[in-house]
Design a protein around this nucleic acid. Structure first.
Lengths: 226, 226
DNA sequence: TGGGTATTATGATATATATCAAGATTGTTT
DNA sequence: AAACAATCTTGATATATATCATAATACCCA
């Protein structure tokens, strides 16, 4: 953990256009907080005071829909700027955020971000672009999922985890079967059933949370065509 | 149609923080284009050169998913800044846009908008807020729809048209039953069936495209609980 | 004005998905 | 280590939704 934003590895993704004195402000004002797996970072309804920014780990963004039902909006990895979701439109969080893995989050006072948007045009344009990209990604994921049947959705989520999150065909599921269901709109039992089906067809190997994708091509076909 | 953005009724929603000379630039650079109902304004894949802004009418934002299947992302009325969707993240449109009613659209060169973001901090913050609001709205609509059964979805779309678009319990459907299905993920036959069901239960009156909501409370209950 | 095409409509049937049930496994607390 | 809770698993069944078929009506245009 370093304490100077100017030399932070992640700066290039959003903060590349800041000036010396802005980096100084940022380094001073930001807080870096470490969370253990399973902790809740943000609760729906809480006041938004900071701009959150995932440095390391994996987050789950979700909302509570019934007394005991959750709907997962998305999973966010570093660089995903999940904090950008509705940060500029609402004064209170619409979604809760929890950690799926040990994570470390940078919190920058929202006022400071707005101030930098105001004073630094390049930063403003970069932020607009990042925000737009993130929203696109989330929306497109939902639209895609809506078109797929259960097999397609299950394949989709496995591919997403393999390609976007873990960059490996072998990984541990960061979530329970129930949570997978909440993410791609299906029942726990069906998630399990279809994973078993994939296993029986020799497409994946399963060992508890451990997944290995054996036949990537086949899985891509299923994701595409159901 | 007036030609000076400074005195345009709609300016207050986004362009309230511009300076005299920026209004002058805007008035000069923008184009106002009128479309008849059913025309296509933007085709998926086309280069984005302008920031589009609906002054009057109703738009449908959609994407083509199969050889002959469409998925409607949303319906946009004036003030909805539908053009903001992915304008800052992509260089080509991801979605098509067509008119559901006679419409008039303002087109502002994207370069000019970016330039104004750069030079005018208040404008930048306002734009961030509007963009965030629009994305929230679209995403929330999709998340809500996903939770509802077919009856709930059908009720939801009728309420949306009544409350948000036409501000009246009596209105003409701007879309076919097929398009309603594309918007809320259901089959044409089921849209028709459920509308008939609502009619038979005395909740709405139907006359071709004409809809009158008779029992608003009931419809709200159905939208909420299915 | 007619003939073609898209839309609206309803019924019968098939299919996908949810629900219910019950047991096995894993994880957590005392 | 025992006891409890949560998760995972599979099978049987119910339910919601899609699909197929057919007809009536509205709409377009040559």
């Amino acid at each position: 953990m370093n304490n100077n934003c100017e030399v932070c590895f992640y700066r290039s993704f959003l903060f590349d256009n800041l000036e010396k004195k802005e980096f100084a402000l940022l380094s001073l004002a930001r807080k870096e907080i470490d969370y253990k797996k399973g902790e809740i970072i943000v609760r729906e309804g809480e006041k938004i005071s900071d701009f959150l920014y995932l440095k390391e780990g994996l987050l789950k963004v979700y909302r509570t829909v019934g007394p005991r039902k959750e709907q997962i909006v998305g999973v966010a990895k570093p660089m995903d700027f999940v904090g950008l979701l509705s940060v500029f439109s609402k004064s209170n969080y619409q979604y809760s955020i929890s950690t799926l893995e040990d994570s470390s989050v940078c919190a920058i006072p929202l006022d400071l971000v707005k101030q930098m948007v105001h004073s630094n045009g390049d930063f403003a344009n970069t932020l607009l672009k990042k925000m737009s990209e993130m929203n696109d990604q989330i929306l497109n994921a939902r639209l895609d999922i809506n078109l797929k049947n259960l097999r397609g959705r299950t394949a989709y989520i496995l591919l997403m985890l393999s390609k976007e999150v873990y960059k490996s065909e072998k990984f541990d599921l960061p979530v329970s079967r129930k949570e997978i269901g909440e993410l791609i709109d299906m029942r726990t039992e069906n998630v399990i059933r279809i994973l078993s089906e994939f296993r029986n067809d020799g497409i994946i190997k399963i060992e508890g949370k451990g997944i290995e994708i054996v036949d990537m091509e086949r899985l891509e076909q299923i994701s595409e065509f159901g």
